[in-house]
C-alpha cells in the first residue's frame, strides 16, 4: 500500500516538480517577451507589409497589393544601385578594417614599453558613437574646416580641394573611411584575443625547430587564427551591411543616391517617403539575401571545423 502511495507523487510533489520545471522560464521569460514583442512580432508584421500598400500619409492605403512591390523593385534602378553600393561598402570596409586590425593586433601582441597606453589610445575610436564619427569625418572632408581635401589635393588624388562627399563618383569613400576608422579596434581586439590564446610554447617549439619569423607566422599564427578570422569577418560583414548609421549621418544617401546602400535605402523610404510597404519589400529582399549569405557562412564554418 505504501509502495503504491510512493509511486504516485502527491499533489504537493506535482506542484514542486512543476515549479522546478518552470524555474528557468521564470528567469528567461522577460527577455523572451521583449524579443518577441519588439523584434519578432514587428518582423512578421513587416514581412506582411511587403505585400500591402502602406503609405503613412495616405488614409486610403492599406490594401493588399500582392507582389507589386517586388515587381517595382525589379525595375527600380535606385535599388540596384544601392545593392551594388552595399557590396562596395561592405567589402571595402571589412577588408580595410580587417587588414589594419590584423597589423595592429600583431604589433600589440608582444609586450613593449608603452603598450598599455598605446592599446588604450588606439581603441578610443570604438568608444565614439558611430553617428558622431560620421559627422566628424563629414567635417574633416569639408574643405572649409577640414584638412583632408587639401591633403588629398596636395598628394594628387584630388584635382582640386573639393568635398568628396559631394562628388557622386567617389562620395561612398567618405563613409567607408569613417567606418574603417571606427571599426579597426573591433578587429584588433578580437584578433588580439585570438592571438593571445595561442600557447606560447608552440612558438618556442617552432623556433627551436628552426622556423624563422615568417615561417612561424605562416605555419602557426595563420592556421590558428583562421577559424576566428573567418567567422569574425563573415559576421562582421553582415553587421556592416545592415548598419546605415554612417551613411544617414554623413550623406543621407546623396548626392543623387550615389551613397545609398540597401539598409539606408530602406530607412530613407520609410523615414522620408513614409512608404512603409515598399520599404518593407526592400527589407524582405535584404533579409533573403542575408539568409543566403548566412547559409554560405555556415557551410564554410562546417568545412573549416571538419578541416581542423
Amino acid at each position: 500500500m505504501s509502495v503504491q502511495a510512493e509511486r504516485r507523487p502527491g499533489w504537493h510533489g506535482t506542484r514542486r516538480r512543476f515549479a522546478l520545471r518552470m524555474e528557468p522560464y521564470f528567469y528567461a521569460s522577460p527577455a523572451l517577451i521583449f524579443i518577441v514583442a519588439v523584434m519578432l512580432v514587428p518582423l512578421a508584421i513587416g514581412l506582411s507589409y511587403a505585400f500591402r500598400d502602406i503609405t503613412l500619409l495616405n488614409p486610403f492605403s492599406g490594401g493588399f497589393v500582392g507582389v507589386q512591390h517586388f515587381v517595382d523593385l525589379w525595375h527600380d534602378s535606385d535599388f540596384w544601385q544601392a545593392l551594388g553600393n552595399t557590396v562596395t561598402w561592405t567589402v571595402a570596409s571589412v577588408s580595410l578594417q580587417f587588414f589594419l586590425g590584423l597589423v595592429l593586433a600583431l604589433r600589440l601582441y608582444r609586450p613593449f614599453p608603452g603598450r598599455g597606453l598605446v592599446q588604450a589610445l588606439v581603441f578610443v575610436p570604438w568608444a565614439v558613437p558611430m553617428f558622431l564619427s560620421g559627422l566628424n569625418f563629414a567635417w574633416l572632408f569639408n574643405p572649409v574646416i577640414g584638412p583632408l581635401p587639401h591633403w588629398l589635393y596636395a598628394v594628387g588624388i584630388l584635382s582640386s580641394p573639393e568635398n568628396i562627399l559631394s562628388d557622386p563618383a567617389i562620395a561612398i569613400w567618405g563613409p567607408i573611411v569613417a567606418n574603417v576608422w571606427w571599426g579597426v579596434p573591433f578587429f584588433a581586439i578580437t584578433l588580439l584575443a585570438a592571438l593571445q590564446s595561442i600557447p606560447p610554447e608552440i612558438y618556442e617549439a617552432a623556433e627551436i625547430d628552426g622556423a624563422g619569423t615568417w615561417r612561424r607566422f605562416a605555419d602557426i599564427t595563420v592556421p590558428f587564427l583562421a577559424p576566428t578570422i573567418a567567422i569574425t569577418v563573415l559576421l562582421r560583414a553582415v553587421w556592416i551591411a545592415n548598419a546605415p548609421d554612417l551613411i544617414v549621418a554623413m550623406t543621407g544617401g546623396g548626392p543623387a543616391d550615389s551613397t545609398q546602400i540597401v539598409a539606408s535605402y530602406i530607412f530613407t523610404q520609410a523615414f522620408k517617403g513614409l512608404d512603409f510597404g515598399y520599404a518593407s519589400a526592400v527589407a524582405t529582399v535584404l533579409l533573403m539575401l542575408l539568409l543566403v549569405y548566412a547559409l554560405i557562412v555556415l557551410m564554410i564554418r562546417q568545412s573549416l571545423l571538419k578541416a581542423s
Binding site: 510512493e6 507523487p9 502527491g10 504537493h12 510533489g13 514542486r16 516538480r17
Partner: peptide
C-alpha cells in the same frame, strides 16, 4: 528523513 518522505521538499 526521520520517517518523513522528503522527495518533494526543497
Amino acid at each position: 528523513i526521520d520517517g518523513e518522505r522528503v522527495n518533494d521538499l526543497a
